[in-house]
Design a protein around this nucleic acid. Sequence first.
RNA 1: GGCCCGUUCGUCUAGGGGUUAGGACGCAAGAUUUUCAUUCUUGUAACACGGGUUCGAUUCCCGUACGGGCUACCA
Length: 531
Amino acid sequence: MVRFLAMTANGLNDLNNPLTTSMLKPRVRFAPSPTGALHIGGVRTALYNYLFAKQHGGTFILRIEDTDQNRFVPGAEAYIIETLKWVGLLPDEGVAFGGDAGPYRQSDRKDIYQRYARELVERGHAYYAFDTPDALDARRQSEENFTYNYLTRSSLTNGLTLSPSEAQARVAAGEPCVVRLLVEPGQAIHVRDLVRGDVVFQSSELDDKVLLKADGMPTYHLANIVDDYLMRITHVIRGEEWLPSTAHHVLLYRGFGWEDTMPQFAHLPLILKPFGNGKLSKRDGAKFGIPVFPLEWNGATPDEHFSGFRDTGFLPEAVINFLALLGWHPGGEQEIFSLSELIEAFSIEHISKGGARFDYEKAKWFNQKYIQAADNAALATHIRPLAAAKGYATSDDFLAKVAALMKERVTFLPDFVEEGYYLFEPVRHYDDETLQKKWNAGLTPIFEELTARLATFEPFESGDLEGVVKNFISEKGLKPGDVLPLLRLAFAGTMKGPAVFDMAAALGRAETVERLRRFLAHAASFHAVGV
RNA sequence: GGCCCGUUCGUCUAGGGGUUAGGACGCAAGAUUUUCAUUCUUGUAACACGGGUUCGAUUCCCGUACGGGCUACCA
């Protein structure tokens, strides 16, 4: 970031320089692989890319990295797109979003990579290799630490050991082969990481990575460099698992002669399991009973079914807020950030270096805070399908009342109907323990009279109801504590829930009176049997 | 094994050569609330270890330990 600002400052002095002017408007990409449900860590990577781009008026690009045909999973690409839409991180360019640097799906760019692979061979920075995967596996079996590198390549079958004419002939004959990066030993390769500073690798430690596979598809390494170059990517913000191979990437930029426009790198700390060791994995969801994916995912087999934050009942804003603070913090004491506040506050230098443990309790707290702050009409739209699924037929007006009454006591969206079931359906079970404590036969006429009074009382609003009922209670020489808990039982059946008069007002006159009558019937029978 | 990265309360983190090491989640207690919850108050709890450098290190350097990542014709 410091570096970035420095470069933008230079750019202001030299607007003719395409590199520095492009730095004024960064172009970043989120480049997931469609191999299954998008991991929540991927969503965070997308978020950081998005925040960085938006803060600087730059461009956020979605690129689909589907170069591994064996791991392709149908539906995964659509899942990624739906996730980005749900959390509100809309790409400016990319698969399904248009743009003039496409195509944005790597499988649609196959010929481009082949062309560049050939170019790199011609430039002397890569070579054809004819060793079969089986042959290499055999070497790995027999040699403890076998690596395809400057020490071993002379003993393998490739464009360096074969005569040029023979190698050409083999390629021309269509013999299966790969293209490998030619790594020259003896160089120190510096990666200037925006999060970690200068990271140095010795080229002699690096292997001759495969760039183009025998099936004609590129590996990540080649595709990534070619695409970032052609798409004019200025900053690569990705997970820490890519840090070791960044040395290879630097070599590729050099080999192509693109070092001048090489993007800057920022490697993000990983998200760790909530308990135990290791990074968060998809199995942890089932193991700990928590979502680790944004959306529900239904794979081919039952054990490939995962629930997500959305179907668990999280608000996307809460997920974004939670994720933003998992590995980054601006330094103040603010915890709640809207997306636009995040765009404002984000900075790469405040990204933490250490891995962040996935703290589900904190995620729940964020959701609770966002539900509390949401307006009732908005909540009503979220509750509507949940209520419908339960078979409750209700109006938007009533749902907004439910939202108002319940929003301070729920954590997840489905809690509105799960916890607040009594607002939607008649009381089926009364808390008889409380009933036994509070009820006595002498109350019957009093409740009958109260019911009659409420049957005609106007206006049927919470404050007015409270006034009339409390007056009635004192008229009868009773205390609120004698009657209110019983009214609560009448309306909800349970001792938990919103204020008694709020419930009555939300339920409306007819339902309130009906519930009082049913309660009286129950109390009478309970008394007869129970005491 | 090799290479690379990391390490402040249980968790997410702020901070930074001299601080009562701050906030948030969680947990505990209290207040408010006729219930539950919300809200408020208070409490709980941390600089991994060992050497340096320094008048002084949690902060800088080096080791160690521990954790993590990479080490495929996967990304």
